[in-house]
């Protein structure tokens, strides 16, 4: 019996592999999947009083969410802000990744390290320094006033959706630079030479060869920026003001002061479902486009 078990173990690579994967999978199941399922379940409950939750299943929390305009507004705004963060980050980092991949010859690694280093330094402090830069008495305003270019502080700089987009585009830059650089660097350079030999201009070559081949990196960057930023809490709290409040600030209130776990859970479920479906659609479209282009 034991011998035959040993034989099965020796022969079966899957068993060996899954024994090694066991801790990692258990971690995901116990610390992520089951809490998320429980949250999903809680979203069908009702908060009766501070300590008491009625566990009769109901879809009222979802009705609450969609009936009160504040929730749908915040959801829409969160998706909109993340969309613009993703777009701005992609557009501003693409030329950089392109430059490192095709023009930098020596010390490419150093460039990459320097471009990603700020990402490792305290997220909280980076967001905070944007508050200092954009604030009413902030760096931009005080500098402009000191040189006499403006007489009163520019009020529109901080506490707006633009401030949130700018700050997040700065905070998440590394997540776009890396996948873009990796996909651009992988491109077989002889393809580009072939394109020139066939009479394409530099611009045509970029548009017909380089860009379509870099789309996997673009998709990677979209997924890794769009989904997490929807749930960002710190940035809207520090630089968003009332105009820049996002759904996560509401979720925090529901799990904190407002103490309405079921409605908070429903909001979290809706956030996750909507952001994943948007991300799936965007990925699908990008894939289609890349197939048509190449």
């Amino acid at each position: 019996m034991i011998i035959s078990l040993k034989k099965i173990y020796a022969k079966n690579e899957n068993i060996k592999a899954y024994l090694l994967l066991f801790p990692a999978l258990m971690l995901v199941i116990l610390a992520m999947a089951s809490p998320m399922l429980l949250t999903f379940l809680t979203s069908f409950h009702t908060q009766v009083s501070m300590m008491e939750i009625d566990t009769t299943l109901t879809i009222d929390r979802y009705k609450d969410f969609f009936n009160k305009p504040v929730y749908t507004t915040l959801l829409g705004r969160s998706l909109k802000i993340s969309f613009f963060v993703t777009l701005v980050t992609l557009i501003t980092t693409y030329p950089l990744a392109y430059y490192i991949a095709f023009y930098v010859k020596k010390n490419k690694m150093l460039w990459i390290v320097l471009m990603t280093l700020p990402f490792w330094t305290s997220y909280l402090l980076r967001v905070f320094s944007w508050k200092v830069i954009l604030g009413h008495k902030g760096v931009v305003n005080s500098a402009l006033m000191a040189v006499g270019m403006i007489e009163e502080p520019l009020g529109f700089l901080i506490y707006s959706q633009t401030a949130v987009v700018l700050t997040l585009a700065h905070a998440w830059a590394a997540f776009a630079i890396l996948p873009l650089y990796v996909s651009l660097d992988k491109i077989d350079k002889s393809l580009l030479e072939a394109s020139y030999d066939l009479g394409n201009s530099k611009f045509q070559t970029f548009w017909r060869v380089t860009f379509p081949l870099s789309l996997p990196g673009v998709i990677g960057a979209i997924l890794i920026i769009f989904i997490p930023t929807v749930g960002d809490y710190v940035t809207p709290q520090l630089v968003g003001g009332t105009d820049g409040r996002m759904l996560s600030n509401m979720i925090q209130a529901l799990f904190g002061r407002a103490n309405n776990f079921p409605l908070g859970a429903a909001s979290a479920v809706i956030m996750l479902l909507s952001v994943s479906s948007v991300a799936l659609i965007v990925t699908y479209i990008t894939r289609k486009v890349s197939l048509r282009m190449s």
Partner: peptide
């Protein structure tokens, strides 16, 4: 790594 951290956070609170 990809799921919004706030979702993981509130789920663990619920658990």
């Amino acid at each position: 790594f990809v799921i919004p951290e706030i979702i993981i956070a509130v789920s663990l609170i619920v658990l």
